[in-house]
Nucleic acid binder design. Structure first.
Lengths: 122, 122
DNA sequence: GCTTTTAGGTGCAAGCGACACCTAGTCGCA
DNA sequence: TGCGACTAGGTGTCGCTTGCACCTAAAAGC
């Protein structure tokens, strides 16, 4: 099926909106809880996603220098980002709807064809 | 959101399973009814998808030479293809589930944050 | 001192996708 | 009888995305 890195964008926006602010390494740990695939998300994909969202104005960032440990690039969601998140939700809503419709129709078809096959061989 | 050509594969398998047999040009006309995106599916992506499914043994094909009109490459789903379709349905089922969960949680969050904002400004 | 953990990257080859383009048969119509 | 529209199935290629390997650097544990 591939790895669907594109789809980490809405998850990142959601997690950041819920947490208020966070940074790449921390988000990487929380992604699996909402990720669409079981496959582990590539960390470089996450970093690139964050940079891209910032480039589009959906996130703002600043460096946080904790007393202990390496520096963190801390992100927050902008007004534009919140709007983008809601657009994503509309898209995912329709997408999920199309998927369940296909799954239902396909499973119905399989049942139907199995029962036909059954009556023929009996 | 991108163009999600990867996701025409399960739709193609389903349509072929339902119709019994068909060919590229005909499937192209039926795809929009089950496609995940509103965007028109690129015909070259469909042809390449069919060739790839055949290469993996999920489809079988033969040339149909109608009395009138150009030749058609007619495809049918193999046993392996039916199995592959069922696997796809499991994947899409979980995928759709993850999506609706995210959408629900995100919309709940938006409502919550709006009501908090509301009480603060009032 | 050495490894592990935290943190944020870069570089590049391979793959994928979108578009332009090509061949070829049939039909309608002017 | 020429021409465009429709049916049918492709190829070639450029650019963007993705996945993997790799790199830097600070702190903490052994």
């Amino acid at each position: 099926m591939g790895h669907l890195s594109r789809f980490i964008e809405p998850v990142v926006l959601f997690l950041l909106a819920r947490k208020g602010h966070s940074y790449g390494y921390d988000l990487a740990a929380e992604l699996p809880g909402y990720a669409f695939t079981e496959a582990a998300v590539d960390r470089t994909a996450l970093y690139r996603c964050l940079r891209q969202l910032e480039a589009h104005g959906h996130l703002a960032s600043h460096w946080d220098l904790p007393e202990a440990g390496p520096a963190r690039r801390v992100y927050t969601v902008t007004a534009s980002g919140r709007k983008h998140l809601e657009e994503w939700m509309d898209v995912l809503d329709r997408l999920a709807g199309s998927m369940v419709r296909l799954v239902q129709d396909a499973r119905e078809l399989v049942c139907l064809q199995e029962s036909v096959e059954d009556t023929l061989t009996r």
